[in-house]
């Protein structure tokens, strides 16, 4: 208690309050305030007293003082002005409106961009498909044109195949061109197939039946493999995927080169 009394009567606390202490004295006083509640109470009372005195003697400063001060702050620290104007915690009404409009504009731009990009992507996709279709059509056209050229070529021989010999209602034409080693079938009539069946065409050469391919009934020309010196062409019905040897019992059409 004597220590506290000694400190309070030393005048150091008043000195500290006024800001007149040395650094060492201030540190010492801070420790006292921290350690002794009585000194803390006295210090708080003194703070309250000088504040009350100031309130009693307060005088409104001229308005220009504040504006000058704010200008001074802005000129000394232009960063603060911009920070203030964009402070998200305290935006003015205009700033809020500008912010809202900016966000709206940005969202609209994003929507237009996204929408435009979406449409562009779809158009690009359609264009790609069309281009692929065109390419395919070009190829088909080229193939058909080539087939027609071959069919019309002087060296092409049209071989008629039918099923009279096998009592079958079958008719088809084989276009056979030795120059291009190219062969096509134009299907007219063929017996119906079961689901697990297909047609298979055989070329007879030197007493052997050599497969030239399998096919289904179609309106298009059917390309088959060419074979030199074939003596006849024969069509059989075979299981799906074809057979290594022709099923003679299933012969539906035949045409002879001789």
């Amino acid at each position: 208690m004597d220590k506290i009394k000694e400190i309070l009567e030393s005048g150091l606390l008043e000195c500290y309050l006024m800001g007149d202490c040395t650094e060492e004295e201030s540190l010492r006083m801070q420790q006292y305030i921290h350690i002794y509640p009585e000194i803390k109470i006295a210090y708080d009372e003194y703070q309250e007293a000088i504040n009350k005195m100031a309130e009693e003697n307060a005088s409104l400063p001229p308005a220009h003082l504040k504006s000058n001060l704010l200008k001074e702050i802005n000129s000394a620290n232009p960063r603060s002005s911009s920070e203030h104007s964009t402070n998200p915690q305290m935006p003015s009404g205009i700033n809020k409106l500008l912010l809202a409009l900016s966000v709206l504009g940005l969202l609209s731009a994003c929507w237009f961009f996204w929408n435009g990009k979406n449409k562009l992507d779809k158009l690009q996709e359609k264009y790609t498909i069309l281009q692929e279709n065109c390419n395919q059509s070009d190829k088909n056209y080229a193939a058909i044109k080539k087939e027609l050229e071959i069919i019309k070529a002087p060296d092409t021989r049209a071989l008629w195949l039918d099923g009279k010999a096998f009592n079958q209602n079958a008719q088809l034409v084989a276009y056979w061109n030795p120059q291009y080693e190219y062969a096509l079938l134009d299907l007219k009539t063929l017996p119906k197939l079961k689901k697990d069946q297909c047609y298979q065409i055989w070329a007879d050469k030197d007493g052997k039946m050599i497969s030239r391919g399998t096919f289904q009934l179609t309106d298009d020309f059917v390309k088959i493999e060419y074979l030199d010196n074939a003596e006849s062409l024969n069509v059989t019905i075979e299981p799906i995927g074809g057979s290594h040897e022709p099923t003679i019992a299933n012969l539906v059409a035949q045409g002879l080169f001789t």
């Binding site: 003697n57 005088s59 409104l60 702050i73 920070e83 203030h84 915690q89």
Partner: peptide, 28 residues
């Protein structure tokens, strides 16, 4: 804390609160 973060509006609040006391003191 806002003044430390350079918020002028908060600085104005401090000025409005304390400037009359400071001005009165300095006048004396």
């Amino acid at each position: 804390q806002k003044v430390i973060a350079r918020d002028e509006k908060s600085f104005e609040l401090l000025y409005d609160e304390y400037a009359p006391r400071v001005y009165g003191l300095v006048l004396r």
